[in-house]
Every structure is written in C-alpha cells, then in structure tokens.
C-alpha cells in the first residue's frame, strides 16, 4: 500500500488532471483507480461521496473533489498538494495553446476552423444545460427558479453574483420555513 507523502498526492492528482479531457465525466473512475485503490484510508464509497458533495458546492467540481481527498490524506497540506497537482496540467496546456492561438488566429484557415467550432460550442452548451437540467429541475419550484435566473441574466442583465446572492437568501428563507414546520 502506498505511503502517504505530499509528493505522491501531487503526482497522483497531476495524473488525474492530465487525463481529464473534455469535461469531468471521467473523474470518478480515475479517482477510484488512482486514489481508492492506492490508499488504505480512502474507499470507493468515500470517493463517490466526495464527488457527490463537490457537485453541490461552489467552484470547480474536480478541484473540490481534490481538496476533499487531499485534506483526508494529509490535512491542509495534502489539500494544497492535491489542488496543485490537479491544476498544473490545465495551466501548462492552456498557456502553451493560448500563446500559439494568439499567433495563428489571423490565418484564414484557422479562422474558418473556429467559425465552425463556434457552432460546436453552442451544441456543447446545449448539452451541458441539458445535463444540469436533469439534475436540478425536480419540481415546479425549481423550474420557476430556472426561469427567474434565466431571464434575470438574459433580459434584465443583472450581475450574476447578485442573482446567486438572491438565490442564497431565498434558500435560507426556504430552510427557515421548512425548519418551522413539524
């Protein structure tokens, strides 16, 4: 069984970060093979629980999961090692590509390529909204909240942060009402 060291945590999350291609769909199996099978103190169930919890917390889901696992393995230092490992591949690949892209973006061939990709991005967003919809629109109330935030941003151009803060306040009120009912 692997001894827990910060270097080891970093390397494992670096690997997971590298293999996260095209969205976070593969993170669960990666966590199971890289973390749950390698460390005694974390089981498959733990990993699934951390992932589920991470989805209902603010921020990037993969990063949240990394903090949970890293903290469990080696407290705050472990969390830092896990975050750094998770973020490094993303950081390096984007810096390289962004640099390249700014140099070639004016080439006509590249422009026509990205004109097409713009349409693909719309389909991608449509699919992402669909995924979130399935997980979140569970009843009429949730649908009304969807409509409210959708039109607040699209029609009334309210700052997204204000929309989220209003949502948190609404959540607190709902929680208070539920808590009072027996």
């Amino acid at each position: 069984m692997t001894k827990i060291s910060l270097k080891d945590i970093y390397i494992r999350f670096f690997r997971i970060g590298t293999l996260l291609l095209g969205g976070g769909y593969v993170i669960l199996p990666l966590l199971q093979s890289e973390i749950a099978e390698k460390y005694d103190c974390i089981t498959d169930d733990d990993v699934c629980e951390y992932y589920a919890l991470s989805q209902s917390l603010p921020g990037v889901i993969a990063v949240n999961t990394a903090v949970f696992v890293g903290y469990r393995l080696a407290r705050t230092k472990g969390a830092l090692a896990a975050i750094s490992g998770m973020v490094t591949p993303a950081f390096l690949s984007i810096i390289l590509l962004a640099n390249l892209l700014t140099q070639i973006v004016h080439v006509p061939f590249v422009q026509s390529l990205f004109a097409g990709v713009g349409i693909g991005v719309l389909a991608l967003l449509f699919q992402a909204v669909g995924e979130m919809w399935k997980k979140s629109i569970t009843d009429k109330g949730a649908f009304l909240i969807f409509l409210a935030s959708f039109s607040a941003l699209l029609v009334f151009k309210v700052f997204p942060i204000y929309i989220v803060i209003s949502g948190i306040i609404l959540g607190i009120v709902l929680g208070y009402l539920k808590g009072r009912k027996p």
Binding site: S56, L125, A128, V129, M132, W133, K135, S136, I137, A142, F143, I145, F146, L147, A148, S149, F150, A152, L153, P160, I163, V164, G167, I168, L170, G171, L174
Partner: peptide
C-alpha cells in the same frame, strides 16, 4: 435553489 439557478444562468 442554486442548482436550477445555475442552470438558468448557463
């Protein structure tokens, strides 16, 4: 509240 809200924003 925040799940459908995030969906609406996206």
């Amino acid at each position: 509240v925040l799940k459908p809200l995030g969906c609406g924003l996206l």
